[in-house]
Amino acid sequence: MSARIDITLTVNGERVSRSVEARRHLIDFLRIDLGLTGSHAGCEHGVCGACTVRVDGEIVRGCLVLAASLDGAEVTTIEGLTDTGEVADLQEAFVARNAAQCGFCSPGMVIAAADILRHHPEASRAEIREHLSGNYCRCTGYQAIVDAVESTLATRREGAR
């Protein structure tokens, strides 16, 4: 057993090696050790969803993942997702519909919503709400957020025709 654990992983396409404390969760690792502050630490016990990031292609609660456990993993944060342009249309829809107020939940919300775009292109409004039910927004009342996801899905479906 060692107090610090050496890990090498890929973050937003870049190889990163660090020595971390066991108690370091993924979000503090990203924010404090790597300076990637787009991922937010909210409740820090897995309830609010502000810390949603991708690990090995799937969304997770960053506050419920030990950085030490991620040796060899591939992590994508809102910064990486923005750089690749994967969610540019979704982000534009969030802006156009004013689907944020304080913005604290937005990075996690966009990553969770991107999961819908990838895995559930035919999602109904009810399914969008269900999928985002683990991401809390205390400002907007969710309507504009669901609108933004719904319109992005619709636009992408039309584009695919």
């Binding site: 060692s2 654990i5 404390e21 969760h25």
Partner: peptide, 11 residues
Amino acid sequence: MKWPAIGYLRA
């Protein structure tokens, strides 16, 4: 709250 100081072993 942050996690307490703790050890980690990878099996």
